[in-house]
Design a protein around this nucleic acid. Sequence first.
DNA 1: CCTACCGATCGGTAGG
DNA 2: CCTACCGATCGGTAGG
Lengths: 196, 196
Amino acid sequence: MATATTNSTRDQLFHTASQMFCEKGFHATSIRDIAERVGIQGGSIYSHFESKDDLLWSIVQHAADRFFSAIRPVAGADMGITQKLRKAVITHAEVITSDLDAAAVYTVEWRHLSPERRAEVTKLRDEYESIWRTMVDQGIREGYLAASDAAGASRFILSSLNYLFTWFRPDGPLTAEEVGTLIADYTFDGLRRRTV
Amino acid sequence: MATATTNSTRDQLFHTASQMFCEKGFHATSIRDIAERVGIQGGSIYSHFESKDDLLWSIVQHAADRFFSAIRPVAGADMGITQKLRKAVITHAEVITSDLDAAAVYTVEWRHLSPERRAEVTKLRDEYESIWRTMVDQGIREGYLAASDAAGASRFILSSLNYLFTWFRPDGPLTAEEVGTLIADYTFDGLRRRTV
DNA sequence: CCTACCGATCGGTAGG
DNA sequence: CCTACCGATCGGTAGG
């Protein structure tokens, strides 16, 4: 009832693994731990995933997809850069807050992937960051942003966003949109009071 | 020559473990991996540390100590809140950049500690954050900061700082102090150009 | 999807 | 600090 997804065994394994990798980390979670939580035997996992690495990979890929699918329409939208950047921050925040486990696994556990896949994730991250750099660049060129270095500024924006999964709780005082708005305010306006 | 520390076997184990825990993660690094890099047998580690958990714990404790020792004099200094907050940001950045491995282990691997020690680290983090909250609170009261929520603002400051270990490289274009200054500028002034 | 099993590796210890 | 070993657990497989 809580999640309205298919609920096939494969989906259950996927979501349970996502939870446990987030909770305890990839290597501290055994294939048997996951199987037990889903109610099957350890070996049975291998009729759904070829390896533990494959299981992690599918989670990481899915998370990456969500970030790209969410940001692309914003980056390509026909709107002023001021509003676009705000919208982008709020969108990224919503991707994280709507699946904290996935965000955590994507941010910290991806490095336990096989070397080839780790390289693939690095490439995806660069690609994602370059979407941000393009927006920030435009902001600088149009005189909206004061930052001199688009790469550094992009990293700054993404830092506070990517830290979200460590402290945001759905049952906390802030909604997902409020938290995105707050980060956007802090990021662009700064903490210092603007003298009138 | 590079590090002028004691270079006792214990120190070598400590630093090698710090490096490898950072590189591959705690559970992906075996006691034998560390021993081999130092040039001793796996079992010999246990004449220097009681357990693998103890080894991680000593690294985490040392990292925590460095943060506290650096921030306390700043927090207690007799200076204006404007300068104090800037100084605090630069100081935190310097603790991270001067030992990236330690910062990474402290930030991501601490959760693989035994439950009791994990709880202890959580307590330390809260304590550290409360030092920041006190400074931010003062900044708000004195009208220097526009933020309404000291806890949220503190978290925002620490987010971009704590992401430093993922991208800062000593051989990169920025020095440790430059990076601290840049983050302080972005954090307090924001990315948006202030209209004159 | 289960039972039963594989080789490999793990953290840790005893005894020197 | 080493040699030699311990039980436990790991990811993964075969055969049904």
